[in-house]
Every structure is written in structure tokens, then in C-alpha cells.
């Protein structure tokens, strides 16, 4: 295995001969690895229940509610009730206009 130590001497370094090989994993050690899982679980502390606060509607909220309700009402009026609106258009054709003008003069 290549083993270069940059805290060592510069230039060519001879490979470091290992004195001991890493110890193989024993069955006991495997159980040691799993230690964090076997730790006793802490009992979860009960959190004190928070009191529900009474909701107060602010002026802004009331205004926006009324405003949106008014818009909805107008939309309904436009599409549903406008049929009942009667448009009276009085129109004078050119000859009728002449008659009308003479009648007013006389």
C-alpha cells in the first residue's frame, strides 16, 4: 500500500512496513459497533399543552371579508340579475328629428 507522509522527508520515501495489520473484526466487536442502538431510550417528556388563544378578528380582516363579499355579490348581480334591468333608448331618425325640431320651434 502506498504510504506517503508529507510531514516526513521530501523526495523519495520508502514504503512504510506495517508493524501490525489492522485487527480483524470479531463478533464481540461487532456488537460493540452496535452499541449506540442498544442505549436505553430516554422517555419523552410530556410537553405542557398550550392554551388555545381566542382569535380576535382585526379590522383589516373584517374589511377584507366585507370587500370580498361585496365583489362576489356584484358578480352574482351582473350575471344573474342584470336581465331584469331595462334599458330605454330613445332614438330619433333624421326625419323624426326634423319634426321634433319644428314642433319645439312652433
Amino acid at each position: 500500500m502506498a504510504d506517503l507522509n508529507l510531514f516526513g522527508s521530501e523526495g523519495f520515501q520508502a514504503p512504510v512496513v506495517s508493524e501490525e495489520t489492522p485487527p480483524p473484526l470479531k463478533q464481540e466487536e461487532e456488537s460493540a459497533v452496535a452499541i449506540p442502538e442498544t442505549r436505553p431510550m430516554k422517555k419523552a417528556k410530556k410537553k405542557p399543552r398550550k392554551r388555545k388563544r381566542k382569535k380576535k378578528y382585526s379590522g383589516h380582516e373584517i374589511f377584507s371579508f366585507l370587500f370580498s363579499a361585496a365583489i362576489i355579490a356584484l358578480v352574482i348581480w351582473f350575471f344573474v340579475l342584470r336581465k331584469e334591468v331595462i334599458f330605454n333608448v330613445s332614438e330619433y331618425p333624421p326625419n323624426a328629428f326634423e319634426l321634433h325640431r319644428h314642433a319645439n320651434k312652433g
Binding site: 504510504d3 523526495g11 523519495f12 514504503p15
Partner: peptide, 9 residues
């Protein structure tokens, strides 16, 4: 620069 070498097997 500091330079280090090692021959690979």
C-alpha cells in the same frame, strides 16, 4: 513547492 515520491508495487 514541496515534492514527495513513492514507488508503487
Amino acid at each position: 513547492s514541496s515534492v514527495f515520491f513513492q514507488e508503487l508495487k
